[in-house]
Simulated assay, not measured.
Amino acid sequence: MSTQELFVAAARKCLCVGRKSLSLPQSLDLAAQVSAVDLGFKPALLYDSNSASSEKVQQYLSSLQSSQLVSKSLLTLDLNGNTLIVNPVTVRSDLEQVLCESSVAVIDVGHSLEKPTITDLLRVELKSMIQVLLLLLRGFEQLKEAEKPLYVGEKCQEWNLCTVFGLLLGYPVTYWFDQTKSFENCLSMTPLMVTTAAATWQAVPAGHRCCLYSFSVPAVLLEETQSNLEYWRLRLQRRFQQQNVLKDLTVCQTTVTLPSVCL
């Protein structure tokens, strides 16, 4: 079987929900994303192809590892029922950099605000979250291979998962809101600059184009976050040049205004 066929077969075998399996485009997109995580080009993938459990995602990952399609260092992380496939070395490096250099801007989008704003008030809370994640990842790296998902469990009950996902996925900005007051936000009808990064996965004979990053920044904060965005872009290009599985990297920006934004 070809590399493409092995990836697709693993997805269809392990990630079925009921009688429904992933389509070919979904399987190829997932394969490209996981390959990008394995390369360290992308630190983590938030699994949302269907409602497969973290156990099924772990089975899929283990199948890929058994076929030597990806390295055995990748792990499945379960954050309060949300599943991520993680490159622990890349994520740990990114999180340590956030602690040392404040390379990620935290944007408060609480519903009561007139407009989104960058906040430094979360530095203690953010530092605590990152330290817990680093302890978990360091513990995993002492194992040779994970046979089941790594469950964060009670440790993340009070975390704002929107903020955590931004950190784990390697975004230069991440959103925060006080979830004890409301899960709504102030981004309605707010112009957002959406940045997307795409590349071609070469395991498919004709090449498979896939979006590997997508995040937004309120247009009103573009000037304040410019250094974060530029640093992210330079690091992305550097990581891209260190591999030969993906090609034709493009980074595009568009501005959108939506009646509601779900985080």
Rank of each mutant, 00 (worst) to 15 (best):
W159D: 07
L169V: 06
S227K: 12
V245D: 05
A203V: 07
N185M: 03
P172N: 05
K155M: 14
Q242N: 12
Q243C: 13
L161H: 15
A206V: 11
Q202N: 11
V173S: 02
T190I: 11
A198F: 01
W176Y: 15
Q237H: 13
S188F: 00
R239H: 10
V173K: 02
V204L: 03
T250A: 14
D178S: 10
L222Y: 03
G166S: 08
K148S: 12
V164S: 01
A206H: 08
C186R: 06
T196L: 00
D178V: 04
T163P: 04
D248C: 06
P172S: 05
V194P: 01
M193G: 00
Q226I: 01
L187W: 06
C186W: 01
Q237A: 13
T163L: 15
A199E: 04
S182Q: 10
C210N: 10
V194A: 02
T225N: 06
Q202S: 13
A219R: 13
F183N: 14
F177R: 15
S216R: 01
L236W: 07
V220L: 14
T254Y: 00
N185D: 03
S227F: 02
F177N: 11
C162A: 14
F240W: 12
R233Q: 14
D178F: 11
Q243D: 09
N244A: 13
A203L: 11
K148M: 07
E184R: 14
T200L: 08
M193R: 13
P205Q: 04
S227P: 00
T195S: 10
L222E: 06
Q243E: 11
P191Q: 05
V173Q: 05
G153S: 15
Q157G: 00
A203S: 11
A146K: 11
E147V: 10
L222W: 05
Q157T: 11
L168W: 02
R235N: 13
L234T: 07
F183G: 06
L192N: 01
V173Y: 02
E184W: 07
L246K: 07
L221V: 05
T163G: 03
E154W: 09
L187M: 11
E158W: 09
L221E: 05
G153W: 10
V245W: 01
Q242W: 09
Q157L: 07
V173H: 01
Q253M: 11
S182N: 09
W176T: 07
C186E: 08
